[in-house]
Measured scan of single mutants.
Amino acid sequence: MSGIALSRLAQERKAWRKDHPFGFVAVPTKNPDGTMNLMNWECAIPGKKGTPWEGGLFKLRMLFKDDYPSSPPKCKFEPPLFHPNVYPSGTVCLSILEEDKDWRPAITIKQILLGIQELLNEPNIQDPAQAEAYTIYCQNRVEYEKRVRAQAKKFAPS
């Protein structure tokens, strides 16, 4: 494992614990031996107030490669969400998460999670990743928002 990646992720964890947006979660997972795995984080993004996503808490896994922060983490909703920019596998399609697009090593975990929260309610229809959600979003916004509200209710924190 890269010392650069681990040191950056340790800084990220410290900064997150000191200050993070209300309702968001970002925690490194534990290895079988109980030690912390900084390369694999369990996160959760709350649906934004005043949107059909409100009330939901959407679980996301963030996986970092050894060359982080040169390369972005892979962000994957578990379980996958109904959304035009979420692949059926759950992987998020967002330009700041793509090395050859808008990724920059200075982007923080907090910025990534806030960017994904923004994307939930403002899909990028130029870059669809899920045919069904994309089609319904474009053709029947009322039905799309109904499905999103049902999903938010399903993923409401207990």
Rank of each mutant, 00 (worst) to 15 (best):
10 A>S: 10
139 Q>Y: 14
20 H>I: 05
123 P>L: 04
157 P>G: 10
142 V>S: 14
69 P>F: 04
22 F>G: 08
116 I>V: 13
140 N>T: 08
31 N>G: 07
27 V>M: 14
48 K>N: 10
85 N>G: 01
84 P>M: 14
119 L>I: 05
91 T>K: 05
125 I>V: 11
28 P>I: 01
123 P>G: 02
15 A>K: 14
67 D>Y: 10
144 Y>I: 03
7 S>W: 08
155 F>D: 08
145 E>I: 09
128 P>S: 13
78 E>F: 04
66 D>K: 09
154 K>M: 09
88 P>Q: 15
46 P>K: 07
11 Q>I: 14
121 N>M: 12
117 Q>R: 11
68 Y>P: 03
14 K>E: 02
45 I>F: 07
10 A>K: 15
126 Q>S: 13
51 T>N: 02
51 T>F: 05
60 L>G: 09
51 T>I: 03
92 V>T: 07
100 D>R: 07
53 W>M: 04
17 R>E: 03
42 E>F: 10
100 D>H: 14
73 P>H: 02
70 S>K: 07
26 A>N: 04
60 L>H: 05
103 W>C: 07
84 P>C: 09
88 P>N: 08
51 T>Y: 04
21 P>G: 04
122 E>R: 10
134 Y>K: 04
68 Y>H: 07
102 D>T: 05
21 P>D: 04
55 G>R: 08
24 F>H: 05
60 L>I: 12
19 D>F: 12
94 L>R: 00
128 P>R: 11
119 L>F: 15
150 A>P: 09
154 K>N: 09
46 P>A: 09
94 L>D: 07
59 K>F: 13
33 D>C: 05
107 I>E: 11
48 K>D: 03
97 L>C: 15
151 Q>W: 01
56 G>W: 01
80 P>D: 12
70 S>F: 09
48 K>S: 03
76 K>P: 04
126 Q>E: 13
71 S>F: 06
54 E>I: 08
56 G>A: 05
67 D>V: 11
57 L>R: 11
43 C>D: 07
35 T>G: 07
96 I>C: 03
30 K>P: 09
150 A>C: 10
40 N>M: 12
109 I>N: 03
64 F>S: 04
136 I>A: 11
130 Q>L: 13
105 P>T: 07
74 K>Y: 15
131 A>K: 10
134 Y>G: 05
106 A>V: 11
109 I>S: 05
158 S>V: 11
145 E>C: 08
105 P>D: 01
90 G>Y: 13
84 P>G: 03
79 P>H: 15
101 K>I: 08
84 P>Q: 01
14 K>C: 15
43 C>Q: 02
9 L>W: 06
74 K>E: 15
114 L>Q: 12
6 L>M: 15
116 I>P: 01
130 Q>F: 07
132 E>K: 07
92 V>H: 01
44 A>K: 15
147 R>Q: 12
23 G>S: 11
45 I>Y: 06
57 L>S: 11
69 P>C: 03
118 E>H: 12
24 F>S: 05
83 H>W: 03
24 F>P: 00
81 L>Q: 01
30 K>V: 10
124 N>I: 04
111 Q>F: 15
137 Y>W: 00
32 P>E: 10
64 F>C: 08
73 P>T: 10
2 S>N: 08
32 P>D: 14
27 V>L: 13
132 E>T: 08
57 L>C: 12
133 A>S: 11
10 A>M: 15
132 E>D: 13
67 D>N: 14
35 T>L: 02
99 E>G: 14
53 W>K: 04
86 V>W: 03
15 A>D: 14
11 Q>D: 12
90 G>W: 05
54 E>A: 09
69 P>R: 00
47 G>A: 03
40 N>L: 14
99 E>N: 08
154 K>T: 11
139 Q>D: 13
87 Y>E: 03
70 S>C: 13
148 V>F: 01
65 K>N: 13
69 P>V: 05
67 D>L: 03
113 L>F: 06
111 Q>P: 15
134 Y>L: 05
114 L>I: 12
107 I>D: 11
123 P>F: 03
104 R>H: 01
144 Y>L: 01
128 P>M: 03
87 Y>H: 06
116 I>E: 05
72 P>C: 07
115 G>C: 06
115 G>P: 04
130 Q>K: 04
126 Q>P: 08
157 P>M: 07
17 R>W: 04
68 Y>N: 04
101 K>D: 14
86 V>S: 10
59 K>E: 11
91 T>P: 14
30 K>T: 07
156 A>E: 13
9 L>Y: 13
128 P>D: 04
70 S>H: 07
158 S>M: 14
31 N>H: 11
92 V>K: 01
71 S>I: 08
100 D>Y: 08
36 M>T: 03
21 P>A: 00
140 N>S: 13
68 Y>A: 04
87 Y>I: 08
108 T>A: 15
54 E>C: 03
136 I>Y: 11
25 V>Q: 12
77 F>D: 00
61 R>V: 10
151 Q>H: 05
35 T>Q: 04
124 N>Y: 09
12 E>V: 04
146 K>D: 14
34 G>T: 04
111 Q>C: 15
66 D>T: 12
15 A>L: 12
123 P>N: 01
110 K>F: 04
147 R>F: 03
124 N>T: 02
31 N>C: 12
148 V>G: 05
23 G>T: 00
12 E>N: 07
116 I>G: 05
52 P>V: 08
143 E>L: 10
77 F>S: 03
77 F>P: 01
116 I>W: 02
58 F>D: 06
38 L>C: 07
65 K>Y: 09
39 M>W: 09
43 C>E: 08
66 D>F: 09
67 D>K: 07
33 D>V: 01
69 P>I: 01
20 H>M: 00
43 C>H: 00
63 L>A: 11
146 K>I: 11
70 S>N: 14
99 E>P: 12
49 K>S: 04
37 N>R: 13
10 A>Y: 00
5 A>S: 13
11 Q>G: 08
50 G>F: 11
124 N>G: 06
114 L>V: 15
10 A>V: 09
101 K>N: 15
111 Q>I: 14
76 K>E: 15
34 G>S: 06
13 R>Q: 07
123 P>C: 04
136 I>T: 10
126 Q>I: 12
66 D>C: 13
27 V>D: 05
133 A>I: 03
79 P>Y: 15
104 R>L: 03
7 S>T: 11
23 G>D: 05
88 P>V: 08
19 D>P: 05
94 L>A: 04
125 I>C: 11
33 D>G: 03
12 E>A: 00
36 M>N: 00
117 Q>T: 12
